[in-house]
Computed example of a mutant assay.
Amino acid sequence: MISLTNIHKTYQTRSGPREVLKALNLKVGRGQKVGVLGRNGAGKSTLIRLISGAELPTRGHVHRGMSISWPLAFGGAFQGSLTGLDNLRFVCRIYGAPIAPAIPFVEAFSELGPYLREPVKKYSSGMRARLAFAISMAVEFDCFLIDEIVAVGDKRFHEKCHYELFDKRKDRAMIIVSHDPGYIREHCDSAAVLSNGELTSYENVDDAYHAYNAMM
């Protein structure tokens, strides 16, 4: 179980403190797929960072009763001077995942060829995204965090990512944040709407969809 209890997040800005999340509560069980709808700037990415542990809440408590991925296709934490392969080894050590089977998987899935043995700072943004997604799939998690639509590479590669995540790992929990109601309806069995820093949960995705449309 992942649970967020009375979460507040405030950032200090030049114009004073700005509270992005207010008294937010959320529970996600094993295998559950929860969508969070919100406009751009609503705080969806902040919520994902708090769940992953990349940031701490200003107030409140995050309980992580299962292993959680970083936001899929996010390569911002890679060490640029290390090769893609070295970054893979580093991530595996952090998460206690076996390195030997991860290497051939990432080599085949990322399709980076010889660039996997080049420093990541030489990669294009698309190459970094391919590496990040491949490593995300090489390390098994109980819950995957998805920040907006996972669209890595061309149509063929995008379809491969979709199959690897939503078909092969359909038994895993997922938290998907997006401003696209169609994407949430396709992949989630419950949803919530994030607006003005407050999260309203709905057991039925269609109820969340209608509430979001009314807000828009």
Score class of each variant (00 low, 15 high):
3 S>L: 07
145 L>Y: 14
2 I>N: 11
91 V>T: 05
175 I>W: 02
193 V>C: 06
83 T>P: 14
216 M>N: 09
186 E>G: 06
162 H>E: 15
52 S>M: 10
192 A>N: 12
28 V>C: 14
165 L>V: 04
81 S>I: 05
143 C>A: 14
30 R>W: 00
129 A>R: 07
45 S>H: 12
68 I>C: 13
33 K>G: 06
151 A>I: 03
7 I>V: 04
177 V>K: 05
77 A>Y: 13
93 R>N: 13
72 L>V: 07
161 C>A: 12
4 L>N: 05
214 A>N: 13
141 F>Q: 14
106 V>L: 10
189 D>K: 13
172 R>D: 14
161 C>F: 09
149 I>M: 11
123 Y>W: 08
4 L>T: 02
40 N>W: 02
153 G>V: 02
144 F>G: 01
183 Y>C: 02
142 D>N: 09
188 C>N: 11
115 Y>G: 00
117 R>I: 02
30 R>A: 05
108 A>W: 00
3 S>D: 05
154 D>E: 05
20 V>S: 10
75 G>F: 13
198 E>P: 01
41 G>H: 02
16 G>S: 03
6 N>K: 15
140 E>F: 00
133 F>M: 05
129 A>D: 12
181 P>M: 00
55 E>V: 08
186 E>L: 10
129 A>S: 15
30 R>C: 00
105 F>H: 13
156 R>F: 02
67 S>P: 06
139 V>E: 09
192 A>T: 07
122 K>C: 01
26 L>D: 08
160 K>W: 01
33 K>C: 07
196 N>K: 08
74 F>V: 04
150 V>Y: 00
8 H>L: 08
58 T>S: 15
97 A>D: 10
